[in-house]
Design a protein around this nucleic acid. Structure first.
Lengths: 208, 208
DNA sequence: TAATTAAATGAACGTTCGTTAAATTAATAG
DNA sequence: CTATTAATTTAACGAACGTTCATTTAATTA
């Protein structure tokens, strides 16, 4: 047997991505074999090399894709002018975007160590661009005096860790809706940076 | 050659632990081979089996040891009565204990998935005991009305993620002292749960 | 000093790994 | 209908894997 009736390269390629993502997230990059991926795709291991030059490039491509999507979506969705509003938008965006992509997020945080230097540099650069978005919001909030922040870098790291942590416990169909979770995390993030919610809400109301 | 002059089982055992911890944390459990561990210990791979029955048990033992230490230290060091004081003690303890054990912490969070069912159950149970310590503090704080918390479980997860996240960026000898970092995280944790620091400080002062 | 125990070696086991190469069949283009 | 391109197979490569076993040497005990 060789080419299979009805086989389609684009379908196989996306199947390889889907399966690799799921297996890497579940067992870790190093623990997953090409044969294991191939078997779930329904193909022989050697067929994967038609689409990716090696195992490492599958991982790089998955991470690259995730970070690109994250960055462009965040630039699209965080539109407010006021720093407090922007921080709230950031928190809500981060939860909303990540909560439905648990495997990508897990990979992005856990498998950077599996990357060879070149791929690592690329992904690390994208991540620091994302962190810069948050840091810039915090700087604005400090300048305008609405946030009480000792150290913007530490605050940024604390906020990101807190938000990303939702993926360690959230399972869809659970007790809490995604909107509820988004609300709670947004509130905790704002308060953690010295923003008293009622203050800001009242100011907002006064404008209307 | 066989037994080496001056060789000592206890020294070799602890060397195996040290090396395994460092390699597992750096490359991931699955990516590290017995031969790699052995070579850093300065021994042949077969010698490791004098001390551990297999690779999996090295990991289980490292994780077990870490969680035991964490739990007993936390019970020793969190002594206050007042819920707000206890939450502050918890935050400071978690930072202080974890910041100097980056490899153990990383393993505990990342390699649970590498555990076979029995070991997984053991470690997961220890972790939930630790989480229960924090949740109990939050419940007390809610009952006494000093904390503004929507959902204690979500708050506990958020706090733990935020605190544990310090290990993703902290490197010893950096810009900030451990004490400074402890202070900042403790403050953010309290504020995130609706505790206004000055309020509590003033009440404390009033007692003196 | 002889017997025993502790600590390690070196060789080998069957398996699996990532990857390559040649062959084969399906779909498409001329 | 034929030639070409796309998609896949089977077979094989050397290397590395976790683990076992018999053996060897050092240290301790009797």
């Amino acid at each position: 047997m060789a080419r299979i009736a009805g086989s389609d390269g684009e379908v196989t390629r996306s199947e390889i991505r889907k399966v690799s993502l799921s297996l890497f997230a579940q067992f870790g990059y190093a623990a997953v074999s090409m044969r294991q991926i191939a078997s779930q795709v329904g193909v022989q291991a050697s067929a994967i090399y038609q689409y990716y030059p090696n195992k490492q490039q599958i991982l790089v491509s998955l991470l690259q894709n995730h970070m690109d999507g994250l960055l462009s979506a965040c630039h699209e969705e965080i539109t407010a002018k006021d720093p407090v509003d922007r921080l709230e938008q950031f928190a809500r965006f981060h939860i909303r975007y990540n909560i439905n992509r648990p495997d990508e997020v897990f990979l992005s945080y856990m498998e950077l160590r599996s990357l060879e230097p070149e791929g690592f540099a690329t992904i690390a650069d994208l991540r620091s661009k994302y962190e810069a978005v948050l840091k810039s919001i915090l700087h604005d909030g400090i300048k305008s005096g609405v946030m009480k922040i000792d150290d913007p870098h530490v605050s940024a790291m604390a906020i990101l860790a807190m938000l990303t942590g939702v993926n360690t416990w959230y399972r869809s169909g659970g007790r809490l809706s995604q909107k509820k979770i988004e609300n709670m995390y947004a509130s905790m993030v704002l308060k953690s940076q010295g923003i008293v919610p009622s203050d800001h809400d009242e100011k907002e109301a006064a404008h209307v």
